[in-house]
């Protein structure tokens, strides 16, 4: 049942290690609604020009697609670009060719995590991890826990600087010290466990 992704492949010589990454990336792309428009990229740079944070990226969004075409997946995954994207979708809505740039960056993030290609204490991934752990436990997001666990992982010495804001929010009833939980956490875990298995199932191509 897997969609045919051959037409997205590049033609040049590709190293073995990149080939595997490329394959799993293409599988992810096939799951993005409109993901196939990736092949229509004309390298105009509208994505980079529209991106509010491209000035601080090491590889611009346009270059990401160029590198993908050249088959250099490792350079893409090692870049800070995919982590600095704030998901504002400006590139996606402006792309004259309909390339789903933001969703492609999501797919690349997942690929980087699966393959463990990124600096270990890289801040954005640490934040995602904290977020996922807390959400799994409580069923709801827990802001103080998220910030605390994130700062402890990345920059504990800066925790004190947050204190004034914490007090201001607390006195206005804008922080809940204890986590808000869903009622049925037991069944929520059952769903999550099953989803964990589903995550690993990759549909195979029909012969």
């Amino acid at each position: 049942m897997k969609k045919d992704t051959n037409y997205l492949q590049s033609n040049g010589y590709i190293q073995e290690k990149d080939k595997k990454l490329l394959d799993s990336f293409l599988l992810q792309v096939a799951n993005i609604p409109g993901g196939e428009s990736l092949r229509k990229c004309i390298q105009c740079g509208t994505c980079t020009g529209s991106c509010p944070v491209s000035y601080t990226m090491d590889i611009t969004p346009r270059e990401i697609i160029a590198l993908f075409r050249a088959g250099d997946m490792e350079s893409i995954l090692a870049s800070r670009t995919i982590w600095i994207c704030a998901s504002c979708y400006a590139c996606t809505v402006r792309c004259p060719q309909g390339v789903q740039v933001t969703d492609l960056l999501y797919a690349l993030k997942r690929l980087a995590i699966e393959n463990n290609i990124f600096p270990k204490k890289f801040p954005v991934f640490a934040l995602s991890q904290s977020f996922v752990n807390l959400t799994n436990r409580y069923g709801r997001s827990y802001e103080p826990g998220l910030i605390l666990s994130y700062y402890l992982r990345t920059k504990p010495w800066q925790l004190l600087t947050l204190f004034p804001l914490f007090i201001k929010l607390l006195t206005r009833g804008r922080i809940s010290l204890l986590p808000k939980k869903i009622k049925n956490t037991a069944n929520f875990s059952k769903i999550l466990n099953e989803a964990e298995i589903m995550e690993m199932i990759i549909p195979v191509r029909e012969s």
């Binding site: 992810q28 799951n31 997942r110 934040l127 977020f131 989803a195 995550e199």
Partner: peptide, 10 residues
């Protein structure tokens, strides 16, 4: 955004 960006099916 964080969950969506990291674990697709879940």
């Amino acid at each position: 955004t964080y969950y969506m960006a990291t674990r697709e099916t879940i």
